[in-house]
Computed example of a mutant assay.
Amino acid sequence: MKGQEWYQASDVAEEYDEKRFSRGGQLIDRREKRAVLEALGPVEDKRVLEIACGTGRFTVMLADRGADIVGLDISSAMLQEGREKARDAGVDDHLEFMRGDAARLPFPDDHFDAVFAMRFFHLADTPAKFLSEMARVSKNQVFFDTFNDTSTRSIYNWLLPMGSRLYSDDEVRDLVTGANLRLAGAEHDFVLPYGLYRKLPDWLANSLRSADTSLGRTRVGDALASVSYWDARV
């Protein structure tokens, strides 16, 4: 995994949400949460696993909606932030945070109704292995996002400290097929890269987002989108 040591640092975990989801990053947070909720649907009493749960943004949100959820991450520091977030939200008694390796999930086959991962596959060195493990422990649904190789992100990707793995549409479809999954749906979004939004005040980011969304609805929107959300079935 790219950045494995970086993500395990305490100072990185403590500042993670503030650096990425404040200012214009708030709209990214809202969009990603909407993508997860729309994909998973009603989650009450569903058994759900989040891979690379980080500080628990999605884990806590789904626990609050009644999911029986486990958040797995390799970073103890990130998990500690998640536990504090769960306590603050009053849901710490009905979710579980677990340290573990996504390449060797400590669960039996078909253990969860749904398994998802957000902001994970751009760091994956062996994406086929990770996706196969997600498919193995899910009895119904696998949901994940990718950063795309035809997007504006490719222009500045080499400047990023860890870079990102960028995917073509065909590569993702091959990964899904290789994991014995069936693609049920895909959404493509954010013509402008995340990094630009995070540098702007929220009001300006929202204005820019309106233009971004309009462009995304055009014929070239999907081809230029920097992020894709993939919904697959076992």
Rank of each mutant, 00 (worst) to 15 (best):
D17T: 08
K19G: 00
R20M: 10
F21M: 03
R23W: 10
R23C: 08
G24T: 09
G24I: 09
G25E: 08
I28C: 06
I28W: 11
D29K: 15
R30P: 08
R30M: 09
E32F: 10
A35L: 15
V36H: 06
V36K: 05
L37M: 13
A39H: 05
V43T: 07
E44C: 10
D45T: 02
R47Q: 11
L49P: 07
L49H: 06
E50T: 08
I51R: 04
C53H: 01
T55K: 03
R57S: 11
F58Q: 14
V60H: 06
L62K: 11
A63D: 05
G66V: 09
G66K: 11
G66Q: 09
A67G: 01
A67L: 03
D68E: 14
G71K: 04
A77K: 02
M78E: 02
G82T: 09
K85R: 15
K85Q: 12
D88I: 07
G90E: 05
D93Y: 00
L95S: 04
L95C: 04
E96W: 02
M98K: 15
R99Q: 15
R99F: 00
R99H: 00
D101L: 01
D101V: 02
R104H: 14
P106H: 02
H111A: 15
A114Q: 10
A117V: 08
M118N: 12
